[in-house]
Design a protein around this nucleic acid. Structure first.
Length: 569
RNA sequence: CGGGGUGUAGCGCAGCCUGGUAGCGCGCCAGCCUUGGGCGUUGGAAGUCGUGGGUUCAAAUCCCACCGCCCCGACCA
């Protein structure tokens, strides 16, 4: 392809609204163009790269035995009511009406559609197991789209759904997808970290996320420095330290703490460490107030709390409720005397002398001892794990990282198959419900994550498997007819071998072409000039390397071919 | 949704405080020159100054409202 015939509008400067390296580079390299917040057009080169990701995904899904289908993005509201997710997800779904004023949504995901489909088409255990997948555009009304394709309102996703006759069989389907994901990301040139994850709005009981480690990642994760334990912060457990027990004969004593509301304020006012304070949070669980206690230096993990309480809707109590429950304005809540259920983090289980809010304005209690002065309903691991916490498996130190979630595999169970009565007759003629799994890859996000993980100060460094073109041919002086003639011949030979070549045939200064070649990041660059031809050579350089090699004109095709094969192997 | 920022040519920005002719760099078009790391030069095209309203003889500039975009947050006890 000639550069003058396609459209790759490279930019010298990054548009001001791009923040992270991969977003800036996608814009600068002319891969995408913004239409509005979270909405992007794929330009020719960007689309070529995207198609390569899709192709790898497709090949590995097919290899894993999954069946490709294509479901509607436009869906009737009813199926979302049926699964009960309309209420859960309605804020994040785009809702439209047809001309009959029927409510429709633009699908953010497809559990409902596929389960409805399977409930109609599968009736016997002989038809199972089945895994279906599609690569399709998803719509989500994100609270805050950002970072280009990383979090967009409209994006391409590969979603897959497995149906099995039993939990054991479902584990096999899950593992097959897991293994396929490992291969997909490896082929995309990505280094990923697999972590245990929270299932969130998807439901189900177990999931793994595939994370691309990156500073700009939106997810926090912890990983053990010794064993293989790694988890999303939303789920990560920690082995709680057992503090030294202490006790006092002094009863809880009220001290005035005018205007001191936050842990930082109170601890410095009382000359205590945050660790010596009990943080008391008031929540509404399905509308009923509960208290949650964590040590002052810790933050509550709402996901853990929600899981322990078992599927209730959870929200922080508003100021009025807090005032009603505690008898004090916000900032002075404490567990002593509370008449509501109290859940506490395990780190508080060892009785020791602590301080907490006094449930009355501008005052706190000191000399408070758990169990002696108040009773806890139950203890759980309730806090967000952090750097330095002990691994729940092996007790060794964990460290914190950030990651981009590019894939997520779930064991779903029967949440949807139950709702849609997606079942089958077993060999005894008994009606059973299918066990489901679901599996997603953010295709557009994966593309950008590849760049986020592979660039330098000059631009993108594409992996061979994803690069829009494998070879960039540069003729520094297009006024030199012989250079152009040799270049065109080389390109013809390369293309005859199925190699994709981008020929920079612009009448530009050499510097411009070299800068753009680096920016676009094609893996191999071939330069043909009067200078190189004087020796009968072509200069071949890999984007990943500083040094160039001089190759005789006749050997160039085979040299390039072997570089490509070597890297794709 | 809350807070902050921002909106002037395709991109990056100045001008606004102190109202009076809309400007710079890159890019684009035509020519000359040059040809191994964003070269030089001459000429040129291109902007409802986000939108609407108000103040004023006069508004990019001052005031009000709305909209878009970006960032932070959506756990405060």
């Amino acid at each position: 392809m000639r550069l003058t015939q396609t459209l790759i509008p490279t930019l010298r400067e990054a548009p001001q609204d791009a923040e992270i390296p991969s977003h800036k580079l996608m814009m600068r390299a002319g891969l995408i163009m913004k239409l509005g917040g979270g909405l992007y057009t794929f330009l020719p080169a960007g689309l070529k790269a995207l198609r390569k990701v899709e192709r790898i995904v497709r090949e590995e899904m097919d290899r894993a035995g999954a069946l490709e289908v294509l479901m509607p993005a436009l869906q009737p509201r009813e199926i979302w009511e049926k699964s009960g997710r309309y209420a859960v997800l309605k804020e994040s779904m785009f809702k439209v009406k047809d001309r009959q004023q029927r409510d429709m949504v633009l699908g953010p995901t497809h559990e409902e559609v596929i389960t409805d489909l399977v409930s109609r088409l599968i009736s016997s255990y002989r038809q199972l197991p089945k895994t279906f997948y599609q690569i399709q555009t998803k719509f989500r009304d994100e609270i805050r789209p950002r970072f280009g394709l990383m979090r967009a309102k409209e994006f391409s996703m590969k979603d897959a759904y497995s149906f099995d006759v039993s939990w054991e069989a479902a584990d096999i389907s899950y593992q097959a997808m897991y293994d396929a994901y490992v291969r997909i990301f490896k082929r995309c040139g990505l280094r990923t970290k697999v972590v245990e994850a929270d299932t969130g709005a998807m439901g189900g009981n177990f999931s793994h996320e595939f994370m691309v480690l990156a500073e700009s990642g939106e997810d926090g994760i912890v990983e053990c420095e010794a064993c293989s334990y790694a988890a999303n912060l939303e789920r990560a457990e920690r082995k709680a330290p057992v503090p030294k027990a202490s006790s006092t004969d002094q009863p809880p004593t009220v001290v005035a703490t005018p205007g001191q509301r936050t842990i930082e304020e109170v601890s410095s006012f009382l000359k205590l460490k945050p660790w010596d304070l009990i943080k008391t949070l008031i929540y509404l669980a399905d509308g009923n107030p509960i208290a949650v206690l964590v040590a002052g230096h810790r933050d509550l993990n709402e996901h853990k709390l929600a899981r322990i309480l078992g599927g209730v809707s959870l929200e922080m109590a508003d100021d009025q409720t807090i005032a009603k429950v505690t008898g004090a304005p916000v900032g002075f809540a404490g567990p002593v005397g509370l008449k509501i259920p109290i859940y506490a983090d395990v780190e508080l289980q060892t009785p020791r002398i602590m301080a907490t809010g006094a449930n009355s304005a501008d005052s706190h209690l000191i000399n408070v001892m758990i169990e002696r002065d108040f009773q806890v309903t139950s203890f759980h691991d309730l806090v967000i794990a952090k750097e330095g916490d002990k691994c729940p498996r092996c007790s060794i130190r964990m460290r914190e990282k950030r990651g981009i979630e590019v894939g997520h595999v779930f064991k779903l169970g029967t949440k949807y198959s139950q709702a849609f009565d997606a079942g089958f007759l077993d060999d005894k003629g008994t009606r059973q419900i299918s066990i489901m799994g679901c599996y997603g890859i953010g295709v557009t996000r994966t593309l950008q994550a590849i760049i986020e993980q592979s660039f330098d100060e000059d631009g993108i460094i594409w992996p061979m498997a994803i690069a829009p073109y494998q070879v960039s041919v540069v003729v520094p002086n297009t006024g030199h007819a012989e250079s152009v003639r040799v270049a065109e011949e080389l390109i013809r030979d390369l293309e005859a071998k199925g190699i994709e070549v981008l020929f920079d045939d612009r009448d530009e200064r050499p510097g411009v072409k070299f800068k753009d070649a680096d920016l676009m990041g094609l893996p191999i660059r071939a330069v043909i000039s009067e200078r190189s031809l004087a020796e009968g050579k072509v200069e071949v350089k890999r984007r990943t390397e500083k040094d160039k090699q001089m190759v005789s004109v006749t050997d160039t095709v085979s040299v390039i071919q072997s570089i490509i094969q070597g890297e794709l192997a």
